[in-house]
Structures are given as C-alpha cells and as structure tokens.
Amino acid sequence: MSSQPRRQRLVVEDIGDVTVVNFVDKKILDEQNIQMIGDDLFRLVDELGRRKLLLNFSNVEFMSSAALGKLIRLHQRLAQVQGKLILCNISKAILEIFTLTKLDKMLKIVKDEATGLNSF
C-alpha cells in the first residue's frame, strides 16, 4: 500500500494471524474514496494473503450505502478463500445502519477489538 502515491486511508497491524485494520477517515464517503479503501482491503486478501481481517471502526462517524456494498464484497471474497471478516467498535449510529439493512445477520459484528481477536 505504501508504494501507492496517495494518502493513507487505512492503518494495518498484524496481531498474530489476525490483520487489524483501522480507518483513517471519519467519514467513508465518495465513490472514489470508497473504491480506494476497497482496493486496499482487497489487496490485503488477494496480494498479501491475509485471511482473518478485523475492521476497527472506532474512528468512523459516518458511512454511506456505497461503503456497505464494499464490505459485503469483501466478506464474499474472504468467504471464497476460507477467510473471515469481523467488524468491531462500531458506533451506535452506524450500528443502526447495519441493523436496519439486516447486514448484522450476514456480517459478524463484535463490541471491541479484544473480542474480535478472540472470535476467529
């Protein structure tokens, strides 16, 4: 990711065999921005071979339906390669989006990072 001449959108840390991803942006909006975030996430799976992704949303205050679509595709991609996606530290407001759209049934959402690390 660092080879790309563009600003950093994700902070990635490996804890054991789990890759923990924090978002830099408070608002995940704009198709181009979401596309770049998606590219970086898919690169973790397809090029760097990560199979256990824990997305930490503690910085995220707002996200649109386009971002949800990207998360669904990431979940599908990981499922194809026997990987797993877990989301954590989601604010009450954003959690309402997942609940209303019933994506909380499809995506595994846990309270915090420690719980996430123990949920793979």
């Binding site: 669904i72 599908q76 759209t101 019933k102 499809m106």
Partner: peptide, 21 residues
Amino acid sequence: DPTVPENLERACGRGLYMIRC
C-alpha cells in the same frame, strides 16, 4: 428489497431503503 435474504449480498437498493428508514 435489499433486506430479504436473497438480496442481502447484492449491492443495489440499500441507499433507497436507508432513506425510507
């Protein structure tokens, strides 16, 4: 309807649904 099981993994329709909610 993006919330029925067969459409959950599709990307379309979610924005309109969120507006209505």
